[in-house]
Each structure stands twice: as structure tokens, then as C-alpha cells.
Design a protein around this nucleic acid. Structure first.
Lengths: 153, 153
DNA sequence: AAAAATGGTTCAATTGGTTAACCATTAGCG
DNA sequence: CGCTAATGGTTAACCAATTGAACCATTTTT
């Protein structure tokens, strides 16, 4: 492949990614209760699907420092969506879980997000979806590999 | 398609998107000078490729309020990357352009981002890329249409 | 000429992020 | 055993990004 077409390809990819990302964020925000941000919902999701979830784990998955997680958890805790329980075996550890309120809010919001994303996906046909997801997964693997390579494992 | 497989599909899509997005942001951040954020670079890019760029336009494209743009532009202006010139025809309007420093910084950073994205894309073969980009474009169109539909055109 | 709309800015408040210092607790090792 | 790492989490100072509301200056509309 010559340089010009690679250049154009990268160009399209960057522009498409930008557009899809910005507009998706907006669409998702439309499904989330007004006093919660998208990332706050994603954090509820992560805690919900984890058996035992800690701040350190969240910091790693969300690619931010632990102190940032502390602040976010504090806000969600103040709103009554999250519980903190100390591990009695290792008293440094604090486990995060959703309260009943937190679970209710999460389920309700998640349903709406699933309906939204489902309605987007439904506009593609089976073949398209399969091929796309396969490449999308490969892209994910390549990005992860590149990241580990660049940031030193 | 039955509900369970749609549910799984939406699940994979959401998780993949999350992972790709978070990790891409990190990779891109690695290509950008330390005193600039990713979005600041994207704003330099947008201004660079536009003939005449205004705050209102940026606010629309980046899906934030004009006051947020004012703040970002102010920071970029303080660093000497951006110029503001009043339109003498319509004295309400302020045109944004890159200074020479801004252009230099932008070109240099953009080159590194293109190399990064190019190296990712190069790990796919021609067919994969073509099919993926086609579906990716369709996804973009569908998201835009859905957005207009939901937010009332 | 008066009223409405437009393009930008300012300001207070909230959220999210970093760095650095710190506390409590546990793990490792001579 | 006891001192030193290391670990998990919090706190505080600081900055960037964002919103909403009020506002200024300048067109546009009526």
C-alpha cells in the first residue's frame, strides 16, 4: 500500500473515531440520570459485575490514580449508591459494593443503555455484525499489545 | 435473532468500546506534549484544518457549552498557540487561528499520532480494513441519525 | 427606534484528574 | 523477633473541564 492511501486511511479512522466517540458519549448521557456522569455509571457497572471490588482495581481499569477513584467513590457514597466494607482479614483493604438504591439505579439505567445500543446494532445485518466484531476484537488486542509494549509491559 | 444473543452482543460491544476507548486515550496521550491534553490537541487540529473557526463552531463540534471553549482557548492562548482576530465586518465574531508556534507543535504531534495509528492499522490486511471501515462509517451515520432523532434534530 | 437574537466572556460551583505526603496495616527478611 | 518494604487507601493543594446564569457588545428583526 502506498503512503498516500495509508495517510487517507489514518485520516478517516481518526475522524470517524472522534465523531463516533463524541456522539456516543452524548447518546449514552441521554440514558443516564441527570445527577450521574457517564463514568460514574461505568463505575457502578464495574462494581456490580465484580464479586469483590477495590479502589486500586478501579484505578487500574479506569487508568486513573487511586486518589481520583477515592473522590468519585466518595461522591457516589454520599448519594447512597455505594457501600464500603473493610476486609477483616486484611484491614488495609476496603471492598466496594452497591447499595440497594445503587443496584436499582444501575439496573434501570443499564436497561436503557442496552435498549439504545441494541437499537443501533439492530440496524446492521448478521454478517456485517460478525465481521465487524471480529475486527473490533482484534483491534482491542492490538491496542492492548501496543500499550504494553510502549508503556513497558 | 433471539434475545440472549442480542444481549451478549450488546455486552461485548459495550465492553470492547470501553476498553478500546480508555486504552486509545492513553496511547494518544503518550504522543502529546506533556503540557497539552488530548482534547486540546484535537482543538488545535480542528482549528488548523478550518479556514475560519469560531468558538461557537467548536462548542457545537465538541458538544460542550461556549463558556467551556472560552476557557480552553484562553489556556491555549496563554501558551502562545492560538491567535484571536475580530471580524471587522461583524464585530461580534472572533476568528481563531494557530500561531506559528501552534502550527509547529500541532504538526509535530500529529505526525506522531499518525505514526501510531498507522502502525495499528498496518497489522490488519487490506480486506479486513476495507470491510471494517465500511461498517464503521455506517455506524457513524446511524449514531448521527439516532442523535438527531433523539435530541430533536 | 425598540426588541430580539447572536457571539463571546465572566463567574461561581461541581467533577475529575495529578502529585505528594501521609496513615494503617501487612509482608519480607536478616 | 523486630525493623524495613510494600500495599491499600485517604487527604490536601492544585489545575483542567464543564455547566448555568448573567452579562456585554453587536447585529438583525420587526
Amino acid at each position: 500500500m502506498e503512503d498516500t492511501s495509508i495517510k487517507e486511511l489514518v485520516d478517516s479512522y481518526i475522524n470517524l473515531t472522534f465523531s463516533i466517540e463524541k456522539n456516543s458519549v452524548q447518546l449514552i448521557k441521554g440514558q443516564i440520570r441527570n445527577d450521574l456522569t457517564n463514568d460514574q455509571h461505568y463505575i457502578l457497572r464495574y462494581i456490580n459485575q465484580k464479586e469483590e471490588c477495590t479502589s486500586s482495581e478501579l484505578a487500574e481499569v479506569f487508568h486513573v490514580k487511586k486518589s481520583a477513584i477515592t473522590a468519585i467513590i466518595e461522591r457516589l457514597w454520599k448519594k447512597g449508591f455505594i457501600q464500603r466494607t473493610r476486609d477483616e482479614q486484611d484491614r488495609r483493604v476496603v471492598y466496594l459494593t452497591l447499595t440497594d438504591d445503587g443496584k436499582d439505579l444501575f439496573q434501570e439505567t443499564e436497561l436503557r443503555i442496552y435498549q439504545l445500543v441494541g437499537s443501533l446494532i439492530n440496524q446492521f445485518d448478521q454478517d456485517e455484525i460478525e465481521v465487524f466484531m471480529k475486527t473490533y476484537e482484534k483491534l482491542n488486542r492490538i491496542i492492548l499489545a501496543t500499550k504494553e509494549e510502549m508503556l513497558g509491559e
